[in-house]
Structure formats: structure tokens, C-alpha cells
């Protein structure tokens, strides 16, 4: 799909979300919900004693969290789009210069950084940057510039992974 048309559609999804629920889109918050529920289930005492898990702990199941439901939609929506475009395929996508194994290690480390950073920055590219920019929130612009600025600054050092 043409990127500009995709962008307008994404903006409209965001707008519908604002109009219906008053909140924008998000992603990392759903992962946090799942982490907190998992910790509570495995080690309830630990979840109770750890400030962060305790703060986001809720008695309701994670299936009643807005973001978890939204992400369930994202996964199914992505799957449907992939099926429609004929892109469904189990594979490790990597540059020919690196092995699939290295790609997986890098993806995991990247995820780790992103997960950690999203909690510190109170939201990821969707929840903080995109949603934040649409509402003209200063936090959104600052987070967006920090994410893309750092990625550009570090691009040279990781060029072998990609080009």
C-alpha cells in the first residue's frame, strides 16, 4: 500500500480511538499487563513486594485490560492483512551478511532495550510518540525525537546487520 495512504488510514484509526475512547493507541502497555499478570500468577508474594508490579497489579484478569484487547486486535488484524497479501510465512528475516542466529540474538536484545525503555519513557512509538504527537503533547515530540535521533546516531555502528 502506498505509505501516504497507509499513514492517512493509520491516522484515521487513531482518530476513531480518540473519538470513541478518549485515548490513543498503545502497544508496550499490553506487554506490561501480561508481564505483571504472569509475575502475579507465578510469584504472588514477589508481585506484592515489588513496587512496580504492585503499582500495575489489578485483580481483574489481563484479558480485561484495554491495551491487551487492542493488541489482540493488532495481532489478528496483522494476520488478516498478511493472509490477504499472501505474506504468511514462518521465517527469520535477516540481511545476507548475518546468520539467522545472529539476527535472532539481535532481535531479542533490541526487544529487551525497547521493553525497558518503553517503561522508563511511559510508552513506546505508538503510545508515546504517535499518540502524543497527534494530541500535540510535548512528551510525545520529545520521545519521538529521542527514539529516532538515537536510532539515526547509532545506525552506523549496526550497519552490518541491515545493509
Amino acid at each position: 500500500m502506498d505509505p501516504y495512504i497507509a499513514g492517512v488510514l493509520l491516522g484515521l484509526v487513531l482518530l476513531v480511538s480518540f473519538y470513541l475512547t478518549g485515548r490513543g493507541l498503545g502497544a508496550s502497555g499490553a506487554t506490561r499487563s501480561m508481564v505483571v499478570s504472569a509475575v502475579s500468577a507465578v510469584a504472588p508474594g514477589h508481585a506484592e513486594n515489588t513496587t512496580f508490579f504492585h503499582k500495575y497489579r489489578s485483580d481483574e484478569s489481563p484479558m480485561k485490560s484495554w491495551l491487551v484487547l487492542e493488541i489482540a486486535g493488532v495481532i489478528i488484524g496483522g494476520f488478516l492483512s498478511g493472509a490477504w497479501a499472501g505474506r504468511l510465512k514462518l521465517k527469520v528475516e535477516h540481511s545476507p551478511k548475518i546468520t539467522p542466529k545472529k539476527r535472532i540474538v539481535m532481535a531479542t536484545i533490541g526487544g529487551l532495550f525497547f521493553g525497558f525503555g518503553s517503561q522508563l519513557g511511559r510508552g513506546c512509538t505508538s503510545g508515546a510518540a504517535l499518540t502524543g504527537m497527534a494530541t500535540l503533547s510535548l512528551a510525545g515530540f520529545v520521545t519521538m525525537m529521542a527514539i529516532f535521533g538515537t536510532a539515526f546516531a547509532l545506525a552506523y555502528f549496526f550497519r552490518k546487520n541491515w545493509i
Binding site: 475512547t21 478518549g22 485515548r23 490513543g24 502497555g29 491495551l67 511511559r122 510508552g123 513506546c124 499518540t131
Partner: peptide, 8 residues
């Protein structure tokens, strides 16, 4: 009040 939103 404002609704909760973003990723928080």
C-alpha cells in the same frame, strides 16, 4: 477527568 491512555 482525562482518561488514562497511551501505554500507562
Amino acid at each position: 477527568t482525562r482518561v488514562q491512555g497511551g501505554c500507562s
